[in-house]
Design a protein around this nucleic acid. Structure first.
Lengths: 265, 265
DNA sequence: AAGTGGTCTAGACCACTAC
DNA sequence: TAGTGGTCTAGACCACTTG
């Protein structure tokens, strides 16, 4: 039988693209969990309960749970009710993970930045390969110190493909979120790879962050791509070790993390 | 209509539980990708192609891709063919992420370990909370140095609930994989949370790892639970920073990683 | 305009859990 | 044994991309 939702197609409120039904339900459940209606370890209603309650098919409810599970909010095992996996850091990861500004605001801090240098450079082979450039091709480079409510927290050294140089040069790098502004240009970050390691602060970075040389830094090397798979940036983010951590939740079913042996570069 | 697979129920070969069809197909596709049949960025066959080729419904193929996508193997966007997201570190993360031994073998190294201490302790409130213990309750503690082909690579300090003390005491900790052995007891690790940060090596850890005090370490605090949600371990793993990194791939759709502000402990 | 992935329905059987 | 989640089918319409 055909779907019964007469309002199946997009609303014309003009606002946002409207979430699919299974996402709406996911957000309601997430809100209920964060609101304390279901505490950590509590059992959630069954799929049949929910499909009746929301007037959707069981398949839709399963989509909802697949989403919440990937987000690390619930666990499930065959035969038993699903359980809540503690609140933990709330998750809206992709955008927040890529944008320092958005993340900072989401944790209640005021983000700011101090630009150290910008310009066209010929990147190292390591970066060139990740940007998909031929050897000798140049890239646009920005180096910034990022501050959390006034405290220097990270040094960010980012390489962009040349085609992004124009919009980037037109921005006030210290005042706006690059990610937000690029989004207005229709440039969207959809996939990212992060390599997370611990390194010692170089003299240069130590001065920028106002710490001692050799202090442990948490460095994330990130490569971000757009919907078509084109590389948008390759960034080296060095965080003051004592200020930031990465948090990962994974289950047998969903695995996006792995441990790798580093080969000296 | 009912499913047409007459062999729908489990085979009786007695071997392993047999993978569901969608996983079998996923492994075939993964093998094709790793075998170079589809290179990075290549387009994959359409869902209709594959459902015909494998003689399954489109829904099953979609399950296959949901799995591969969560594993970070493929990307997808509405309207276009799915693409291969580079080989990267091969993924069988959960088990490998939890077991140092399995991981070491999977990267072609020989794992070994040197036990520093074992015993019943009253853990810190931080650990007690994570193990789900009341204040003052005791836990079983094991501290080991882990070596990769003879090189000290990590110090592992793990707390287990008391009920695991018996099986643990019966093992030869330096010779066997705890994870593997516990699995034989029917104890399975299904969910894990990792907090990843950079710290400086203490005097004690420096001696154990044969490095200088203050050297950057990559520390992962892990909490692992079984299918019912009972905590199985809380572990502090400190890796020599130059030896190991964590690798994460995430997309807008699947987010298991987040960045957190650390509060000094 | 044709093709592709995204969303949704309705119904079936199975494996496992809990009582 | 009843209930729950896991797997699978068959078919529908939609939003989006590509030629």
């Amino acid at each position: 039988m055909a779907p019964t939702r007469s309002e199946y197609s997009c609303g014309v409120t003009g606002a946002q693209p409207r979430l699919p039904r299974y996402r709406e339900i996911a957000e309601e459940l997430r809100a209920a969990i964060e609101g304390g209606e279901f505490t950590e370890g509590a059992s959630l209603p069954s799929e049949n309960d929910l499909s009746e309650r929301y007037g959707v098919s069981r398949g839709t409810i399963r989509q909802t749970f697949a989403f919440l599970r990937a987000a690390g909010v619930v666990s499930s095992r065959q035969g038993a009710r699903r359980q809540v996996l503690l609140g933990g850091p709330h998750t809206q990861p992709m955008t927040e993970l890529v944008s320092f500004s958005r993340w900072a605001r989401s944790v209640g801090e005021v983000p700011s930045s101090r630009t150290i240098s910008t310009g066209i450079v010929v990147p190292s082979p390591f970066v060139a390969e990740r940007l998909g450039l031929a050897e000798g091709d140049s890239a646009f480079h920005i180096e910034r110190v990022r501050l959390l409510s006034g405290v220097a927290t990270m040094v960010e050294s980012t390489y962009y493909p040349q085609r992004l140089a124009a919009p980037l040069l037109a921005m006030d790098l210290d005042a706006e979120s690059i990610t937000d502004r690029l989004e207005e240009y229709g440039i969207v970050f959809v996939d990212a790879e992060h390599s997370i390691e611990a390194i010692a602060a170089s003299d240069r970075v130590a001065i920028l962050l106002d710490i001692d040389t050799g202090t442990p830094l948490l460095r994330s090397i990130r490569r971000t791509t757009d919907p078509v798979g084109e590389v948008l940036e390759c960034s080296f983010d060095s965080y003051v070790g004592s200020a930031v951590a990465f948090f990962v939740r994974n289950s047998v079913a969903v695995g996006a993390v792995s441990r790798v042996k580093t080969t000296p570069r």
